[in-house]
Amino acid sequence: MGDKPLIEINDLWVTYWARSAFQLRSKPFHAVKGVSLSIKAGQTLGIVGESGSGKSSLANAVLGLVPVESGTIRFDQHELSAMKTRYPAAVRKQIQAVFQDPFSSLNPSMTVEDIISEPLRVHTKMSNDQRRDLVVELLELVSLSKDHLKRHPHEFSGGQRQRIAIASALALQPKLLVLDEPVSALDVSTQNQIINLLYERRDALGIAYMLIAHDLALVHHISDRIAVMYLGHIVEEGPADRVYKNPAHPYTKALLEAVPLLDPAKQRARRAARKAQPAYDTPRDAQVGCPYKNRCAQVLPKCQTQAPTPFSVKGGGVASCFLVADAQPTSEAL
């Protein structure tokens, strides 16, 4: 496990400059605040968090779709964040993406063949026949057939469309696949099919996944590691099983508790406990102390003034919470 990571993100900031009509100066909005992550080749990092936590901004930054404010993204040997927004073709081919909504992520005026072959057309010099053969092969890989080549996206169901999007993303044999909520727009039975398909493909092709989702339970099956994002910060990161079974950060615990329990009595008790907690976010501007302090059930006096740094957690990984530090006073890491 001592090999170098495929992608290494260090202290990444993504900032949007919002300007309204009557303002002369733009106001910064920090979507991603000092995120550091790494993914090894062939491994899967699950990134979870509620909407607005900066997951998709992080994905967009990795894909080079939004400019990076500061920090570094290193992919293989390439320093990506220094390249502003356009990556060289050599890198571009290696990172592909599948997006959330398959009803919007496929161009409605193109045929399935055009959609899957477009990255090949742009990035390779294949002959038409070679390309056609590869497209058929890719279609079969995602359990579709060559009868579908000449059809248009509106003739397919959500799950089939997502398969087409996956086939298109796999066409260039990327080393990293960014999956931005790939199943949250699908119905539950199809979700499992797509997750299983991604699982198979990863093991067969050795692709690394950056899997973004808001459902921790879904992510933990397929992930090697899980990172939990809250308001642009990574609050906890670690081996998938440890994060899922023994969450260290209060926010991770809250995320897990958002999944309803089967036992009505237990569920009722939990709901009562949740109602007792304050449920508003810290304003993003002028933030002092821990980002989670206003929603945290176990908030300490020092959380108001001091931001916790990542502390190692027993069982692997880190969590940015003083409770973790107090439990293991000697083990400050990173």
Partner: peptide
């Protein structure tokens, strides 16, 4: 604003190809 434009950009298509082939036709 459609995701297929984001997808086309993520696949590394040139700005011109994205605008003329994906945006304009639709």
């Amino acid at each position: 604003q459609q995701d297929y434009i984001r997808a086309a950009r993520a696949q590394g298509l040139s700005r011109r190809r994205v605008v003329f082939k994906h945006v304009l036709k639709n």
